[in-house]
Computed example of a mutant assay.
Amino acid sequence: MPAFELEAVTRQLRAAGCVFAEDEARLLGSAAGSPGELAGLVARRVAGTPLEYVLGWAEFMGLRVGVRPGVFVPRQRSALLVEEAAAAARNGPPHTVVDLCCGSGALGLALLAELAGGHDPLPDLFAADIDPVAVGCARANLAGTGGSVYQGDLFDALPPGIRGRIGVLMANTPYVPSEYIARMPPEARDHEPATALDGGPDGLDLARRTAATAPAWLAPGGSLLIEIGVDQIPSATAVLTDNGFRARIARSAELDATVAIGTLGTATSGR
């Protein structure tokens, strides 16, 4: 993009409130095939459409992950969940991993990338989401990886054959308390699906459902990892211990990320 055009686009984006206007202008310029197309992309962004929807992709852990309107955009903080899941896969029963509430499939894709080269063979990946738009997006992103994507409500979506065999279960369940949804940035509140944001009165409704059912699906020694807010640490820890897990918390101040991790013993509790 010529310098004068970059400056003009940057001014438009800055006037619309885009904090990283110059960076966004460069990305939009790279995505556009003509001045007319650029004008259309800029108009969508100025109108409030999330940048990732305008571009058709989001950067996550060094990967370009396809996203489409109506699909939850992967957050950089979720890198902590992936890193902890990779550590669990290396140290525990790794043959089957699951990305529950998978959205675009970004976490499962990043986990396979983290394990590639140092984990042979790679584990079997199963991903699931209740939203058909998210499932279509995840299937496109995981095509060629050997991963399988299913639609349904939590564990109801998964094939029965992996029951009791899951070594690592990533559950990026929605954890925003219902009353806080209205306070979220409009890019999330107005464009992303409520099912990917609203976690119920205290934000842990789906986390509770997941933790209650997970022991029957995990292999002995398997781990459940759930992204939470820092203020939810006491409640999330109780959710895990009440369902027979050994619980610990991983926290990254740099990413402003918190993950509750529950590990089963060598024998399941029979749930």
Results as ranks from 00 to 15, higher is better:
residue 2 P to K: 15
residue 9 V to R: 01
residue 10 T to Q: 13
residue 11 R to M: 12
residue 15 A to P: 05
residue 17 G to K: 05
residue 19 V to L: 15
residue 29 G to K: 04
residue 30 S to Y: 07
residue 35 P to L: 04
residue 37 E to W: 04
residue 39 A to Y: 04
residue 44 R to Y: 03
residue 49 T to N: 05
residue 56 G to I: 13
residue 57 W to H: 13
residue 58 A to G: 05
residue 62 G to H: 03
residue 65 V to I: 15
residue 70 G to H: 06
residue 70 G to C: 09
residue 71 V to Q: 02
residue 72 F to A: 07
residue 73 V to H: 01
residue 74 P to L: 13
residue 79 A to K: 07
residue 79 A to D: 12
residue 83 E to Y: 04
residue 86 A to P: 03
residue 86 A to Q: 06
residue 87 A to W: 11
residue 91 N to I: 08
residue 94 P to R: 12
residue 95 H to C: 14
residue 98 V to Y: 02
residue 98 V to H: 02
residue 100 L to Q: 09
residue 104 S to D: 00
residue 105 G to A: 02
residue 108 G to R: 00
residue 110 A to C: 04
residue 114 E to R: 14
residue 115 L to R: 00
residue 117 G to K: 09
residue 117 G to E: 09
residue 126 F to M: 02
residue 131 D to R: 10
residue 136 G to M: 06
residue 142 L to D: 00
residue 145 T to A: 04
residue 146 G to H: 09
residue 147 G to Q: 03
residue 147 G to V: 03
residue 157 A to Y: 03
residue 159 P to C: 05
residue 164 G to M: 05
residue 166 I to V: 15
residue 170 M to D: 05
residue 171 A to Y: 01
residue 176 V to K: 11
residue 178 S to Y: 06
residue 185 P to N: 04
residue 185 P to M: 06
residue 188 A to G: 12
residue 188 A to N: 10
residue 191 H to Y: 15
residue 192 E to V: 07
residue 195 T to W: 06
residue 195 T to E: 14
residue 196 A to T: 04
residue 197 L to G: 09
residue 201 P to N: 08
residue 203 G to S: 13
residue 206 L to V: 13
residue 211 A to K: 13
residue 213 T to D: 09
residue 219 A to H: 03
residue 220 P to H: 09
residue 221 G to T: 06
residue 221 G to Q: 08
residue 231 D to N: 13
residue 235 S to M: 14
residue 237 T to P: 08
residue 238 A to T: 11
residue 239 V to Q: 00
residue 240 L to W: 04
residue 250 A to P: 04
residue 263 T to L: 10
residue 264 L to G: 01
residue 266 T to S: 13
residue 268 T to N: 07
residue 269 S to I: 15
residue 270 G to R: 11
